[in-house]
């Protein structure tokens, strides 16, 4: 695997050449800074990953694990997750559309990080507006998105759990945070009594690596830390990004026996790098998402589908011979 020439856009989205370089510089600055800061985090545009480099996928469920702990019932946790984007903290957020009867007609999931939209706002506001029109609707105006020359991530068209989201807005759901988490997780830790800290929740708390009870943070931290313990160097694979990994249909039933997987549509990205997807029943079928059943229950919440969506981040592991020293906990 040769040295990377530049960081590509998320899912290798089409991009004018000059803007493509600008995106690479934006992310390259973040990666280079982290590589300077952490011995076992490397910059693939500066260091050859080598022929033996591995690209392990780290995946987790989109439904927020934090809400499982406080749940009283299935309906309670689904309703809570559907109520606010700020609760959707697993690098995946969704919006729900309903018809006049309140029945679910479409659920749209996005894993697209805000950094790319900030890049568009800086480089090409017209393209930003066109993209919003495509993703959210034609009612969007540029002045709703960019205020005082600054792009508003949680603008009026991208803060609701109803309708169509544009990109991630939860405060931890961004690419810079994912990169920093991966870099910080390369540091090995030991407990106060000298025992190696390796289990996901304990490692996350010990290393100050995010929220121990989320799905994503402990999973990323644990995978990176295990590779670092083997002496390897770690980065994230290009194209940098969080991606929708899979949609599971086990236990789903449609009124007419149609394959429930056939209603899942990738809207943005490629099959290997899905940024956005939605679940909707084609009009000619004559029924709605709310008429589809999952585990015997009609789909009344987007979160019922979030239980079945997984999110992926792909690490880049460069075999090396570091002999890291375990450090005390910071968290």
């Amino acid at each position: 695997m040769p040295v990377l020439i530049r960081f590509d856009t998320p899912a290798r989205l089409p991009e004018p050449e000059a803007d493509r370089d600008a995106w690479s510089k934006r992310m390259g600055a973040v990666v280079a800074r982290l590589a300077d800061e952490f011995d076992q985090f490397f910059d693939p545009t500066a260091t050859d990953p080598g022929p033996d480099a591995l690209t392990p996928a780290i995946t987790w469920t989109a439904f927020p694990a934090l809400l499982l702990q406080g749940a009283t019932s299935q309906e309670q946790r689904w309703a809570t997750a559907d109520a606010s984007r700020s609760r959707q903290d697993e690098y995946c957020e969704w919006g729900v559309e309903r018809d006049g009867d309140g029945v679910v007609t479409r659920v749209t999931f996005t894993c697209e990080t805000p950094e790319y939209f900030e890049h568009l706002a800086e480089r090409d506001p017209d393209r930003l507006l066109a993209l919003y029109a495509e993703l959210v609707g034609p009612q969007v105006r540029l002045e709703d998105l960019v205020v005082g020359g600054v792009y508003r991530r949680d603008n009026v068209h991208n803060r609701s759990t109803e309708g169509r989201p544009a990109h991630l807005i939860q405060r931890n759901n961004n690419l810079t945070a994912a990169l920093r988490l991966a870099a910080e997780a390369t540091v090995l830790r030991r407990s106060a009594d000298g025992r190696p800290v390796t289990s996901p929740q304990e490692l996350t708390r010990c290393g100050g690596l995010g929220e121990p009870l989320r799905n994503s943070d402990p999973q990323i931290a644990s995978a990176v830390n295990d590779a670092a313990a083997q002496g390897a160097e770690i980065s994230l694979a290009d194209p940098l990004g969080l991606y929708i990994h899979r949609f599971l249909v086990g236990g789903m039933e449609t009124p007419d026996g149609a394959d429930p997987a056939s209603f899942w549509t990738v809207e943005r990205g490629t099959p290997g790098h899905v940024l956005r997807a939605s679940y909707a029943v084609p009009a000619e079928r004559g029924y709605r998402v709310g008429d589809v059943r999952a585990d015997g229950r009609p789909i009344r919440f987007g979160a019922q589908l979030a239980d079945r969506v997984s999110v992926r981040l792909t690490a880049l592991v460069r075999p090396a011979d570091h002999r890291p020293v375990r450090l005390p906990c910071v968290g």
Binding site: P56, A57, T59, W60, T61, A65, T198, S199, P200, N215, P218, Q219, S222, A223, D226, A227, A229, Q230
Partner: peptide, 26 residues
Amino acid sequence: SKAAPILPSVLSQDPALVGHPWVTGD
């Protein structure tokens, strides 16, 4: 699982599994 992955370091105990398709990639 995502909550408690079986780490590659544990798998390395069994030489037959190192790099095996059942435990690599996805």
